[in-house]
Design a protein around this nucleic acid. Sequence first.
DNA 1: GTCGCAATACACCGATCGGTGTACTTCGAC
DNA 2: GTCGAAGTACACCGATCGGTGTATTGCGAC
Lengths: 187, 187
Amino acid sequence: MSATTRKPGARDRLVAAAERLFYADGIHAVGVDRLCAEAEVSKRSLYQHFAGKDDVIVAMLEARGAALRSMGDPGADAPPRERVLGVFDALERAAQDDGFRGCPFVGAATELKDPAHPASVTARQHKEALTAWFAERAREADVAEPDALALQLTLLFDGASAYAVVRGGSTAATRQAVGILLDAHGA
Amino acid sequence: MSATTRKPGARDRLVAAAERLFYADGIHAVGVDRLCAEAEVSKRSLYQHFAGKDDVIVAMLEARGAALRSMGDPGADAPPRERVLGVFDALERAAQDDGFRGCPFVGAATELKDPAHPASVTARQHKEALTAWFAERAREADVAEPDALALQLTLLFDGASAYAVVRGGSTAATRQAVGILLDAHGA
DNA sequence: GTCGCAATACACCGATCGGTGTACTTCGAC
DNA sequence: GTCGAAGTACACCGATCGGTGTATTGCGAC
């Protein structure tokens, strides 16, 4: 028990339920009643912990972000190229699952539409963090244009996510494209 | 007035309103009341032309598809490489608009979640058509692996769309990546 | 033991959801 | 002139939406 939070409690269960339900069925499709029921938390408690549904969405994305940060990373001692490929391997693995619904951040921003929504801001920050992580690996590999390569890898990442959502599963063409870009940039 | 349709009528106005509203605010966020109001069509008429809201969604995607088919295509007499780049130029132009909300097909499939939903099927078909179009251009350019290249171009297309939605605008890295892939495949 | 906080149960709010029933108007074809 | 199809107006349905008010309970700290 930390100094700020005395109990593990209801808030965490709400966030966990939000991660599951919002991802599986969509943010608009899940009402607060169902969310509370699934979390086994009273509606009143929800509004003691959060300002409203929008606030729950943000908390859910932040929890997702923390969990996803080091998704398929083999570790800092591995060569940068392997670490980059590890991320795409993890995505490919996740995309095989029937329950895969794409990147939750892109999904939230897409469904919310409003770029000024707090959750859209969180989504933007997460994507920028992913690109920055790619750029660090590119610099470690002494790439001439690390930022351009990082952006392109992010495009492929989100493109592969969209592919999985719309068509199901994954394609070997993704990994090939990653290799081509890496080679072209001299990584 | 054609032989099949005697009047321009209410159905077209509903589809047009659906294209605008569903794209701008999201499918779940727009109710049938608002849809009818915006189309200046009575609610009763909607249910005389469509089986339900889901049916309107499908019709809206089909209309979008027909409009988008030859989006930025300079024409069949242009070299295949230019025609491919033309599509990405059109996307880049569209992404500059403040109202850009990504590919409507990916957006619909993302928001609907259910892959069995008729609209999800329509979305899948449209994406497959785009990939097939890329593959035709690749074959015209005598590429060794036309299907792989076509898939990769589709990944970049959807990745760039997601980029615009989450971060706003477009990036020059997209066009560079298209060039790299085209070169690597010998197009 | 008792105080205070976290959490609960549950009724309730106005608004909106997708969808329907019924009666009326408009208008072109014949 | 009349008939049928297309469209409109509007009330209505049960369900659900996000959110609140009120009263009660379980439980650890002191």
